[in-house]
Design a protein around this nucleic acid. Structure first.
Lengths: 232, 232
DNA sequence: CGACGATTTGAATAGGATCAATGGGAGTGG
DNA sequence: CCACTCCCATTGATCCTATTCAAATCGTCG
């Protein structure tokens, strides 16, 4: 990879506590590539050869079984994915594809395992990252087991609204079929869920969604920090 | 705690690589208690004061939102729970109650954090444990998003069957309402799901379930190692 | 303009949930 | 030991949510 990319990668939570020499050697063995949209990066069941870091663009994690497919998560910059499989030297449990043109750092998993064996600071950073990933999945799982589709959508809109600065409207970060799959529903039902939210001030205009009565929406959604907060 | 319990605790994956002195001091600060069934140990939203280890009995992890409740996982001996919250020094995302009389080790979370800061081997063990927990939740999440209720039950029966030595029948490890909640369905629907499986050789006799046509059941269930295998 | 994919809408269906009532054991107290 | 009670599990009936299949509409890009 180009040395001009080093500072950016180094700033990732996972690497910022690492000593510089070790970081250099880790990154020297890595590949930095730009992929077009809709490229399959990995497939579930394959052995975990690389840890992936999204530097630009966005990656969709998805899973398949018995002819069905569902979106498990979206990984924005700067995020890692498939860390657990790499650490365990196991097969991937999820597949990944770029959802837009994306710049991706690929670090051989052997190097990751060597680094965390010999660098306690890196091990701590990994623990932090893993704990965050774990809690994020727990929240998703709670959401799908405890909420209806309309409630899931309402809370997701409220989350995006906060993320985007609470300006009264929201720009959907992915296309609607992806959002539907992420929320665990069919695309048709996402449309209908939006319609159900109309009386609560939700107005859809393409990828922009206006939230004209946030308090009504919150009354319906009953947001719960133990499900919806990203930072805890 | 009694010193006679030390070897048992030491044998837990999380602690076996720890040096003896450090282990002693960690355990000296810990509490070992026996609780009756149906005792609430922790509640979601509370700060993570202890890491819990189940030595005997069984603990149910559950979550609530908006008046609904769901079972997130069952923790058999010897398993830990709420590790991620302890490491992050955050609030619990799940509640826990004993489902039977249980012997529980409670280790102050501050001591856990100190230990993993200063003991690289312990940090590695934590990484292993966390990665396992993460992958377990991912599998649960895949199961609920990709399978119908009947398929989830069928695969769960096959898993228990394997766990219990493939003897042609299965002893349900928890009562049916708990199993239903764990599988993400109402108790009534669990009964109906069992009925649906009758033509596939599934015969319910109280807590014992006979699997008289395993190949038919597997044809229906389409088990998937990336969802159902516990050890990878 | 035309074509393709994404989204929305419509209609019918199915899968699960809910409500209500009944059956069945396990434990308690007489 | 038996009756009683209570809780769990099952069954029935109905409702509701979400899926499925089909078709129409919208938007974008060539």
């Amino acid at each position: 990879m180009r040395s001009s990319d080093l500072p950016e990668v180094k700033s990732i939570h996972l690497f910022e506590t690492m000593n510089d020499d070790r970081f250099e050697s880790l990154v020297n063995a890595a590949y930095l590539q730009t992929f077009p949209a809709q490229v399959d990066l990995i497939h579930e069941g394959d052995p975990a050869d690389f840890l992936y870091v999204v530097l630009d663009g966005c990656v969709e994690l998805y899973a398949q079984s018995n002819g069905r497919e569902t979106t498990m998560a979206m990984v924005p910059p700067v995020g890692t994915f498939i860390l657990a499989a790499v650490l365990k030297d196991a097969v991937y449990l999820m597949s990944a594809r770029t959802s837009q043109q994306s710049r991706i750092l690929m670090i051989p998993s052997q190097d990751i395992r060597l680094a965390f064996e010999s660098d306690p600071d890196f091990a701590k950073a990994i623990i932090r990252e893993l704990a965050n990933c774990y809690r994020a999945v727990i929240k998703e799982h709670k959401s799908i087991k405890l909420r209806s589709t309309v409630e899931r959508l309402a809370n997701r809109l409220i989350r995006y609204h906060t993320d985007q600065g609470s300006i009264g409207s929201v720009l959907l970060p992915y296309d609607k079929r992806t959002l539907a799959s992420l929320l665990g529903m069919a695309p048709e039902n996402l449309s209908r869920a939006f319609n159900t939210l109309k009386p609560y001030g939700v107005k859809v205009e393409g990828a922009t969604v206006h939230l004209n009565d946030l308090s009504a929406l919150e009354t319906l959604a009953k947001p719960n920090s133990l499900i919806d907060d990203r930072t805890m």
